[in-house]
Design a protein around this nucleic acid. Sequence first.
DNA 1: AGGGATTCATAACTATGAGTTATCAAACAG
DNA 2: CTGTTTGATAACTCATAGTTATGAATCCCT
Lengths: 298, 298
Amino acid sequence: MSYQTEFRHFRYFLALAEDLHFRKASERLFISQPGLSRQIKQMEEALGINLFERHNRKVKLTKAGEYMQRELINNFQRLDDIISHARLLNDGMDGNLKLGYVGSAMQLVIPDLLLKFKEEHPNVLFDINEMDNNKQIKALLKQEIDVGFVRMERVPRGLNILPLFEDTFSLVLPAEHKVDSGNFKGLSQFKDEPFILFDSSYSQSYYEKVMQIFDDAGFAPIISHNTVNASSIFRLIENNFGASIVPTSLKLGYDMKIKFIELDKIPQRTTLKLIWNSVNTNPLLENFLNIAENVDFK
Amino acid sequence: MSYQTEFRHFRYFLALAEDLHFRKASERLFISQPGLSRQIKQMEEALGINLFERHNRKVKLTKAGEYMQRELINNFQRLDDIISHARLLNDGMDGNLKLGYVGSAMQLVIPDLLLKFKEEHPNVLFDINEMDNNKQIKALLKQEIDVGFVRMERVPRGLNILPLFEDTFSLVLPAEHKVDSGNFKGLSQFKDEPFILFDSSYSQSYYEKVMQIFDDAGFAPIISHNTVNASSIFRLIENNFGASIVPTSLKLGYDMKIKFIELDKIPQRTTLKLIWNSVNTNPLLENFLNIAENVDFK
DNA sequence: AGGGATTCATAACTATGAGTTATCAAACAG
DNA sequence: CTGTTTGATAACTCATAGTTATGAATCCCT
């Protein structure tokens, strides 16, 4: 390990790397300029790395120095997170876990998962917020939430993904519609009916998948409404504004004035996925993932 | 940031957390026992966290202490990596990048990617090794390689995945076989012919996908040989030991005594994916991923 | 029970090295 | 050329990590 080098050196290094000016940096650090000079020199010798180029009374980061700056900021940020999480544990809390989810996850997956988790960690405080796919991505990157439940294929680098539950699609109709699972022949029966769908902003890849279903059925749907919210889709269907295609698991909890015809013959599936930030140090995240990996949703 | 606390404190903490014995730990650290006692106490006060329970002349980690130990080991490991990478940069090397890949990646994807990368980073040393999917996973977890090229759906936690190139499957036959792309009717023509396939140890999910193809065609293949290596498959086909189904991009570079019939009508595709370890601090990894994300293979 | 051994904590002392002030040489700006 | 600003060097001082000496509590043998 980096013996000889102390924390202080890294603090001084980061200050100087920002200011690129010994006097200014030393003032900001409340030490004298020669003191800083010596500590930096010492650090460079201890690590065997030239961090700064000093010429023409100009200070400049070397390539190695630039890399160090970038990575150290990161590393220290993480160290801070570790300490504040440890402080939470110290204060008697098991900690808290912030979840984001798309509406359809609440029907089936989240209740099962939380129940299982509570068995093992009864004193955990949960923050649970419905948000669309993109909002979850942003919140994860900013570490405003710990895990997200999304329907999308790709996530930005730095986020990890775990498929949880593969779902078929279902056609959703008003309860009194003449077509039902008995006499349903195929989607093409619906080529002249209006559809209410999740907006493409909900998730581009999800949207494309649904469009592919229509494409395979040989027609482009008449889209009467776009929305980002399952219950408003169902409300519209109830009132005869059209039909829709949604993940089958949304069926649970909404059987009132609408009916579902599961499209299990078509190849398309939609997978609910768990995503999280790989640099998150929340001590509960690891536990949560372990449980998520082993829960079997059916 | 954790001012007051110095590096030394963390070193001492880790030693004591291992030994759970002040005198033993102090000896290992080459300091006196009271010295260690004071530093630990100081650290606990500075952080506001009780790290150890001291009772009945027994020392024990608190919950917070256990968490700290786990995470700090991690964090310091990463810090070490940062320093050794910075040292590489300092010594004039742009660095090196170690790749693992499954054979089929070498036909199309890797050459394009490396060429593109070399344009921007001419002084990078590459280590390139063919290995099967599982071996790459293990090597990545041990950080023996920086990136892998695999065909599999899921990877263990801690690894990140980026789909690179989606490929169709092709039926491969001896050049003189009576069936060719002109008179090819469907796979079921081959239900009595022997097949040579990639072993299921190559990648479970890849194997299942290929079996699905046969299943869709309505028969179970007679498997005459399993192997893990494309060129041995082709050698066997050349010598009339049977046919095979492989990713289409393997066609490049092997047109001698065999022929490919692309199965672009079946739904199955195989995606070559880039995987890497999220804790890897190799300064070139970031650059490599940026380029991989933006190269379009066709 | 009681003496010896082992645990960690406390108190007072020592000495290492971080931080100080004073100064210098080099480069720039006018 | 002169005054100013840069970072480096040298000699000093002082804060504190680490020391030794000791103590209180617990265990472990007879």
